[in-house]
């Protein structure tokens, strides 16, 4: 799944917004939440990797 952090975050916020506004139908609820969970995992992974990359970059 090729999606960058920015786009993932955008989509997440959109889903949360829809949830807050109650504009999601119950029918699409589980699919959307599932998608959001995927995006969160993806963002987490990206953050972790970035942190790893940065670590020790300026030590020498």
């Amino acid at each position: 799944m090729k999606i960058n952090y920015e786009k993932a975050m955008e989509e997440l916020q959109q889903i949360v917004g829809q949830l807050q506004e109650d504009s999601l139908s119950v029918d699409e609820l589980s699919a959307k939440v599932k998608r959001a969970a995927e995006l969160i995992a993806l963002c987490r992974e990206k953050l972790r990797k970035t942190e790893e990359d940065l670590e020790g970059l300026f030590e020498d």
Binding site: Q13, I15, Q20, V26, L29, S30, A36, I40, R44, L47
Partner: peptide, 16 residues
């Protein structure tokens, strides 16, 4: 992300 995740845990349940 943490906050978003919490919202995602909470909001669908709330909706239901």
């Amino acid at each position: 992300l943490e906050r978003t995740e919490q919202a995602l845990r909470f909001l669908p349940l709330q909706r239901i």
